[in-house]
Design a protein around this nucleic acid. Structure first.
Lengths: 202, 202
DNA sequence: TAGATTGTTAATCGATTAACAATC
DNA sequence: TAGATTGTTAATCGATTAACAATC
């Protein structure tokens, strides 16, 4: 049903960023403009937009506003997504304070930790909640996505809790891959893995 | 000269993690063990290790210690890499306090900011330095890699400074892609892009 | 020998890109 | 008409995987 390839989906947010930042007076963009911003080939852009069923005009380009709306709709950004952060350590706290997510359609609605010394602490507009509550809160439909900012050993147990409570997606920053049942989407971002890859090419 | 495919390099750190965490008494691992830990196919593992020129023993598996050392050497982890963090906001501060990097061969040696109110502030063992100094410090060989944790608008200018000062690699957390000259390696990690991709599949 | 596991081939897959006719 | 740019084809590329002979 998705229809769009993984690689195409990964590029849509980049196109969207250009379309949102572009001069309000610009009415059209070419595949070359989009390619430049996203760091890809212009033919690739045309193919992506074609897969989206979005048509441009030969000799002219693509209409900015309709394309922007089409990508937003495809990514589901017209309806906001609610995100919980798990782990109120350095990284979790930093993510909770980051205001850039709100502009992109994501609302951070809760942050959880196991440390009694942290529970109840205020971080921006949020109060750190007891991790014990997370299953109930997730099952109650308070959020659809979670960001894991926990130590390696806690990643899989927390992912299990969330999966059984019906979470849709997990973004995992813990230095440990987690496995989840079918139907739950996961992405891993591992800082030292990223640096090691860079280090190899540097 | 690299010889290893990008995809293979990206998997090596995952294999390494298993090899470092494994029971000290285990002398061998099979491609199936490594595949399970890394979330890939066993044939893929064998192909990767073969590309590395590392041989196993049929019917037995791969020797843990030599394989671990071989991967470390390939990734250049036997020599430590020095990393500077640019931007002492929420994220930059969290990264500076993160102790996981040291265990993986990366030393955070400096953190920079432009805000006079932050310059001189202590973060763990580091003192926030004036961004003005970064070109000189980089050119002096104080570090080889940089992590950008700056606002979107600052990413490209900072990347330009670092490139001209001879940086090897940049890990960019700013919500804005940067372009750099040949010879500088860059990776982008964009939190809201990651969430948008997840959101599509969730 | 019997069971396990490697190393490699061949098939397949998914994605990228050059090129160019179509057409604004 | 002349210039620009799309939409799509065909070629290519890089990576994955099943399968199995080799061999411990």
């Amino acid at each position: 049903m998705p229809g769009l390839s993984r690689a195409t989906v990964a590029r849509l947010p980049r196109y969207l960023r250009l379309l949102e930042d572009i001069d309000a007076e610009r009415e059209t963009v070419s595949s070359g403009d989009l390619a430049g911003a996203a760091g890809v080939n212009a033919a690739n852009v045309r193919r992506d937009l074609s897969a989206l069923g979005f048509q441009g005009t030969r000799g002219v380009g693509y209409s900015v506003a309709p394309l922007r709306d089409r990508i937003r709709r495809e990514l589901g950004i017209d309806s906001r997504r609610r995100v919980a952060i798990v782990g109120a350590g350095n990284l979790g706290t930093a993510l909770a304070r980051y205001t850039g997510l709100g502009k992109r359609g994501f609302d951070v609605v809760a942050i959880y930790d196991v440390d009694p010394a942290r529970i109840g602490e205020r971080i921006g507009e949020l109060t750190v909640l007891d991790l014990e509550r997370i299953t109930a809160d997730c099952a109650a439909g308070n959020f659809e996505m979670a960001i894991l900012a926990v130590p390696a050993g806690a990643a899989q147990p927390v992912a299990d809790l969330l999966s059984s409570a019906g979470i849709s997606s997990i973004l995992n920053f813990a230095p440990q891959r987690v496995s989840v049942p079918d139907g739950v989407a996961v992405r891993h971002v591992d800082l030292s893995v990223e640096l090691q890859i860079l280090s190899y090419y540097g």
